[in-house]
Design a protein around this nucleic acid. Sequence first.
DNA 1: CTGAAAGCGCTTACAG
DNA 2: CTGAAAGCGCTTACAG
Lengths: 348, 348
Amino acid sequence: MADQNQLSANKTKRKHRVSQKDIARRAGVSQATVSRVFSDGDSVSEQKRERVLTIAEELGYRPDAIARSLVQRDTMIIGLVIVRFTNPFYARMIKDFTRQLQNRGYSTLLFNVEDSQEMEERLPTALQYRVDGVIITSAMLSSKMAAEYAKTGTPIVLFNRYTLEGNVNAVCCDNTEGGRLAAQTLLEDGHERLAYIAGEQGSSTNRDRKQGFEEVLGQHGYLLQWCEQGDYSYESGYAAARRLLQNDQRPDAIFCANDLMAMGALDVARHEFNLKVPGDLSIIGFDDIPMAQWPCYSLTTIRQPFKPMVDTTIEVLMNAIQSPDGEADMRWVTPELIRRRTTRGGKV
Amino acid sequence: MADQNQLSANKTKRKHRVSQKDIARRAGVSQATVSRVFSDGDSVSEQKRERVLTIAEELGYRPDAIARSLVQRDTMIIGLVIVRFTNPFYARMIKDFTRQLQNRGYSTLLFNVEDSQEMEERLPTALQYRVDGVIITSAMLSSKMAAEYAKTGTPIVLFNRYTLEGNVNAVCCDNTEGGRLAAQTLLEDGHERLAYIAGEQGSSTNRDRKQGFEEVLGQHGYLLQWCEQGDYSYESGYAAARRLLQNDQRPDAIFCANDLMAMGALDVARHEFNLKVPGDLSIIGFDDIPMAQWPCYSLTTIRQPFKPMVDTTIEVLMNAIQSPDGEADMRWVTPELIRRRTTRGGKV
DNA sequence: CTGAAAGCGCTTACAG
DNA sequence: CTGAAAGCGCTTACAG
C-alpha cells in the first residue's frame, strides 16, 4: 500500500528496485543529496546524511552500478578471456587474477572460449559491457582485431602470448629460453637421443619452446629426430609418448611442452613399458604445476613463474587504463629449471 | 577533424564512444530508428536498415549493453561466486558453468572468495551490478542473507550446499549416501579398521559424508575410531594419513572426504610407509576428478556427477529467473561408486 | 551544504 | 514504418 509508483498497472515481473528517488522522497531531500551521501568525498550535512542512511538501510537500498557506469565513464569491470582451460595451470590463473582485481575494486567478467576464432567472436560482448580493460590468456589477437580495439580505446593485455608486431600489451614467459634450458639440462646429463612432445599446434608457446630446444640441439650437432604431436592434455602426452617408445630406436630423454603431458608420458613409460625413470628415460616438463612436486611424479620441469606473471599483467593493465595512449608494453618473464626426480643429474 | 562534439573542451581520457545518435545524424534518421535496427524483431524499412548498418560498420559502432541494461530490466549477467577454488574440481565447474551460460546468452561475473563470511561481503557487489541471478558454490548462505536476497528478487542457487530450512534453491550431491557407499564398499571388501580423513571443518559436505560413513559402521557394530582432520587439500590429506599410519594400531582402510586428499594419503602410504595399496591398505576418495583415473593413482572413488549437477543448477536458475516467485527448488543428485585399483574388491 | 536540471546511451509506448 | 518524447538510476556542473 505504502509504495505506489507513478505507473498505475506496471506488469514488470521484477520487484521494484529501491532507488535514490525513493529515499529522497521519504527523507524530504533532493535526489542529488542522496547521491552525494553515497559518493564519498561529497559534502552533506551530518543531519541529512544520517537521515538518508537510516532510510536507505530500512529500504534495503543498494546503489545501482549499472546506472553509475552509464554516467561515469568506467564500469570497474575487467574482461578475462580464458582459452580452453583444462590445465591446472588455468585454475590458478583465474583465481589469482580475480583476487588481484577484486583487491583493486574491479569485478571480473569471465569468458570461456575454445580457440582464437571463438575468442574474436566473444570479444565484442565484453566490449558491449564497456569493460575497462581485457586480459586475454593464451590466444593470439589478429592485427585486424588489435586495430579495432585500439580504436575503442579499451586496453588489452595478452597473457602468455605476444604479437610479433609488438603493438599489443603482453606478458609472456620466455619460452624459447625455457626450451634451451631443457635441452642444456638433458645434454649435460649425458643424453644423446632427445625427443620432444609438442603442445597445441600453431600456438606460439609451443613454437618457441620447440625452437629453443632445437637450437641448443643444433649447437651440439644434433637434429631433433623424435618429435610427436600433443595438445597439452594428459591424454595426448600419454599417447605421444607411447608412439615414441614403440620405436626400435627409442629416445633416452623426452622434453614435454607442458607438465600435464609429461605426467602422461611418465605414466605410460612406467606402467606400460616398465621403464625406470630416470634410469632408462629422463623426462622434463614445463609449467611447474602443483602436482609436479607430488611424490608420485616428482617431475623435473621448467617453471613458469606464475605469480610474477600475474602481477605483471595486472600492472601493465592498470598502467594502460591510466594512460590509454601509452605505447604497447611488452614484458618477458624468465623461466627457471626445477630439478626433481625424473632426470638424472639432480642431487640425490 | 571530422568528429567534433558539442562539448568544446572535454577532457575525457576515454575516446568518444560512437552512439546511436552519431549514426542517426549521419544517416539522416531518428535515433529511435537506429535503435530499432539493432533490436531484432522491430520493423525498419530495408533501405534505412541498410544505410544504418553501413554507417554503423564504418564508425565501428557497438551497442552499449550498460545503457540497454538500465532501461530493460535485465543485464544478462549471472554472478558466479566460487569459494576457495584450488581443487581441480572447481576448474571444471567454472568452465562448465561459463560455457553453459554463454550458450544461453549470459555473461558471467566471477567472484573469488575465501569463506562464507567474505562471500557475504562480496555478494552486494554482484547485486549492485544487477545480475539476473547468482550461483554460489560450496558456501552456506545465512538465513539473514537469504532473506535479504529474497527481498531484492534476485534468484540464487546454491551449488554443492543446501540450507536446512530449504528456503533457498540448491543443487547438491547426496553426500550422506556417498559416505554410506564408501563404508559399505570397504566393509564388503573385508576391512575391519576403517578410518576417515575429514574435509574442511564445518562444511556440510564433510559433515554429511562423515555421517553416512559412521552410520553404516554403526550398523555393523563398529565405531569410527580413526579420524583425522584435513581441509580438502592434497597436503592436508598427506599429513593426516601420516598421522593415521604412525599409530601402532593402524587402520586397514581409509575413506577420504575428497580425491585430492586421497591422493595425498596414497602417496604417503606408498612412498613414506612403503605400504602396498590395496594389499596393505585400501583407499577411497570422493569426487572422481580427472586425475583419479591416471594410472599413477587409479583411485577408487565416489563420483559426484559433475555434468548433471551443473546442468541441473543452470536449469534451476533459469526457472527461478522466469518465475521469481516460485518456491525454492531443492535437487539431490546421487553419487556413484567407481571401483579402480586402490581397493581390493574390484575386478582384477 | 543543497536543489533543479542536464545528460549518460539506450528502449519503448504513443501518435501518426 | 517512423519520429518525438519520456524514462531507466545515477553523477555532476551550475547557481545559490
